[in-house]
Design a protein around this nucleic acid. Sequence first.
DNA 1: AGCACTTATGTAAGTGCTAACGTAATTGAT
DNA 2: ATCAATTACGTTAGCACTTACATAAGTGCT
Lengths: 317, 317
Amino acid sequence: MFLQDQGELAMGSRLKALSERLYAIADEVYRASGQTLEARAFPLLRYLQVKGPATVTEIAAAIGQTHSAVSQAVAKLRRGGWLVRRRDRADARRGLLELSAEAEARLDRLGPQWRAIRRGVRAAAARCGGDLLGALAAFEREVARGELTREILAEHARIDAARVEIHPYRADWREHFYRLNAGWLERYFALEPIDRQVLSDPDTHVLAPGGAIFFAALDGEVIGTCALLKEAPGVYEVSKMAVEPGFRGRGAGGLLLDAVIAEFRRRRGRTLFLESNRKLAPALRLYERAGFVHHPAPRPGSHYARADVYMVYEGKR
Amino acid sequence: MFLQDQGELAMGSRLKALSERLYAIADEVYRASGQTLEARAFPLLRYLQVKGPATVTEIAAAIGQTHSAVSQAVAKLRRGGWLVRRRDRADARRGLLELSAEAEARLDRLGPQWRAIRRGVRAAAARCGGDLLGALAAFEREVARGELTREILAEHARIDAARVEIHPYRADWREHFYRLNAGWLERYFALEPIDRQVLSDPDTHVLAPGGAIFFAALDGEVIGTCALLKEAPGVYEVSKMAVEPGFRGRGAGGLLLDAVIAEFRRRRGRTLFLESNRKLAPALRLYERAGFVHHPAPRPGSHYARADVYMVYEGKR
DNA sequence: AGCACTTATGTAAGTGCTAACGTAATTGAT
DNA sequence: ATCAATTACGTTAGCACTTACATAAGTGCT
């Protein structure tokens, strides 16, 4: 699923959704056992049950919400007969909120539901490997400490200040060759079986026949790639250029093209061409700037169905 | 903190809060680096960035929200110039949503922020022990499978059908003796150092001097406790009676009292008394029903400051 | 005692989401 | 070809929560 693929980036949304699901489950459990409690009211009511009468502010601090939220929830619960309000005679601003006798009686019957939820959630968490509940509690503390924002900002500054670097092929970066190219192929066309083959085994399909692959990296992580394919002796093709969305406009594409052209020169190639598609306008601009010229006719015997652009390298003006 | 103490029961609220914090962190990171993206819009925009133009319904399914939510978000983003809408000429009901050129350009500069967030969250999660992110993803799947509700309901039925059972003291339940009594002491009075001592070491303070402790359990988990203290030869005191909130009204208190009285008889005690407080009305009713009678005068030399009720056992009528 | 500060709480307006409903367009079974 | 079912998606009302503001009541310093 898309949200899961985004991993840490979509954590907010994922946790929100999970939270919503858990509320729904609890609601369902209360309803199925004939109780009327709403799961959202649980923290407030439970607090009063175990701690006894309390003020709005105290409850808000305990359950981690604003006093306004508690104030509004309290108004609703008072209308529903769950709470009664006594005045605090020491301080006229405060009101002591207390469970009504009826509410107290209701809550006193909910132990089995609570225990069932506790056990069920615990069992489900246990099936997920590791101490999920413990780790989650630790993560809450970690986030509450507030260090996280600072760390991320520092990290961002470092990444943003880094320069794009071009690296020759590295086997441990092979997956990125697949990932980056699959990205634009899926977006603009479709990932064909032949693409999968070439992308997942570039050693066989690119390097072995006499080609080359380059990677662009920023702060140690790959953000782009490009391949030089050997078509025939002295004839090379630029292909499989991809830059990660999010890291475009930093010159990675241009640097990759330069590297590929330099490699083409190093191998004393005669002809360097590429095939592309009109849809890929930003890429075409890059090719033009690097010295590729549009060829009027389509390439004879092209092996790409998606190609409707044929360009040949004529060197920089 | 209270919410954490409630553990699995308040998971919905805890995850909601965590989600909110993470949104806030992401917003802060975007703001600090001069970008205008709102974290809540990320899933939608990111989806369009990696997948290309899509319809409202497709996006909704991908990011796990209702089409209404997406429809409204889209309207807002269109007003803000992030999205443009093309008509799908094959199906006039649908509109193809697409990032505006400007939005595309903005998103193409956000890679460093995203990577920083990813690294930061991952590092924080790593500090929490276990594979938090992996376990969380597994938990999401677990919850999505929908099995959980059924499990909890079955568990609830079992617990609810179980009968309260009285057990003699067990060392491995000692913590419950503390927990249950600390509960009402903190709620109605205060947990004094002397209470802590007695509650955390009942072997020394209750059993060794010739007393006894009983536990009430439901479906294998402790829900109540009560102690018989030996005051002098032949003189015993009922004390430290507590039933867990949520499991009251199931007769546990009465059964515990019966067990304590039976133990008093077994030891051929002469006098059985107790001290309590007017505030604890439900407990007082239990005592009366078990055969305790209010004594007019306060007990001479009482060691409880909080006691204003003195009752003596006279047997059942 | 007086007055600035702080605290407790309520109210109003806004946000992000859902559920419920409505309408137009498309699909599928006959 | 017709018409009921389905699909796409917008609109409305409502909910839970937040932020911003308002107000009354307490506190502390002089």
